[in-house]
């Protein structure tokens, strides 16, 4: 499935090689493994290494033009393509869904430029590129999570001057971040921040966990897996290495809470212990809830289907 797409995308570049049939020899001759040239990969990998060495620190990198628009996952894509190897199995999700248009396109691009297999189940995958979610299944040391980040700067809301921002991070001066949480609580009675909740990494740098929901935040803390955050438009890479503290900024007397709607459960698989999203039904005047992680939901639906079948027999 990979070659026609790639020819479509890169048709102009490969036009001179008219005799190629789209097999692996095409890639070997014309395109590098993982699309990026080795110098670009090296530069991105260096940025990643720095990011891993200084957890939470936003490392600038020379973001490339990618065959996706900036702001559409180009940062995550560059990370994925820079670290992907022939033994990897890739999974790409968008809003928790493997079948979203964006997810499909990015996955096809990675697969077609590398020839590696793809999967939708985390169990079978090693490289998971994501926007908005962390899969519900527990991830482990085999996995590398690559997050596409639109706005990497957690302090953007309180300060716009780049030099002042750099100073604040350098001196761990996050008082104004706290003030914004204080004001949120004063104004609204609760801290309303939902996605991209600011977290302190390794007791040093505050990061934007953009744009995953609060639900996923606790799973970054002391995780078994490596998380890499890439912002293509803003040209920043940062990381949460395995076994690293990730603490959501919250007041001692205002506990951090994840999203939870009492009584809500997935209409498809009946789960009430996953991150659920509300769907507005247009025909009936009501809404219902479904799992955000479509792959997880599908597998659990099959499980409950088979178990209920078992009961019937």
């Amino acid at each position: 499935m990979n070659t026609p797409l790639l020819q479509e995308i890169l048709g102009n570049a490969s036009r001179t090689d008219t005799n190629l049939d789209g097999s692996s020899s095409f890639k070997a001759q014309t395109l590098n493994f993982g699309l990026l040239d080795e110098y670009s990969k090296r530069e991105i990998r260096r940025a990643i290494l720095t990011a891993v060495a200084v957890p939470g620190y936003q490392v600038p990198f020379g973001s490339r033009e990618m065959p996706v628009a900036r702001g559409w996952g180009s940062g995550g894509l560059q990370i994925s393509l820079a670290i992907v190897g022939p033994d990897d199995v890739v999974k790409v999700i968008d809003q928790g869904d493997d079948e979203g248009v964006n997810a499909v396109n990015l996955r096809r691009l990675i697969v077609s430029s590398t020839g590696i297999p793809e999967s939708t189940t985390p169990e079978d995958s090693t490289l998971i590129q994501t926007r908005h979610r962390i899969p519900e299944d527990p991830l482990d040391a085999r996995h590398t999570l690559v997050l596409q980040v639109p706005v990497p700067e957690p302090l953007r809301g309180v300060e716009r001057d780049m030099r002042e921002l750099a100073r604040m991070h350098a001196e761990a001066d996050y008082a104004r971040m706290w003030v914004s949480l204080y004001e949120d609580k004063v104004r609204n009675g609760v801290i309303t921040r939902t996605t991209g909740y600011p977290c302190l990494v390794n007791s040093r740098y505050v990061i934007a966990t953009t744009p995953i929901p609060r639900w996923d935040i606790p799973r970054l803390h002391q995780s078994e897996f490596l998380s890499l955050f890439g912002a293509g438009r803003e040209k920043r890479i940062y990381a949460v290495p395995p076994h690293t503290d990730v603490e959501p900024l919250t007041f001692e007397d205002v506990p951090f809470e994840v999203e939870k709607t009492p009584g809500a459960k997935c209409r498809n698989c009946a789960s009430n212990n996953t991150f659920l999203v509300e769907v507005l039904a247009t025909d009936v005047r009501q809404s219902y809830w479904v799992c955000s992680d479509s792959d997880w939901c599908r597998r659990h639906r099959e499980l409950s289907d088979s178990s209920s079948q078992g009961l019937m027999t």
């Binding site: 996050y174 008082a175 706290w178 003030v179 204080y182 001692e252």
Partner: peptide, 14 residues
């Protein structure tokens, strides 16, 4: 609150 949080205060009520 900015002055207090800069000095390490983390208890909203206090």
């Amino acid at each position: 609150a900015e002055a207090l949080t800069a000095a390490g205060w983390r208890h909203f009520g206090r």
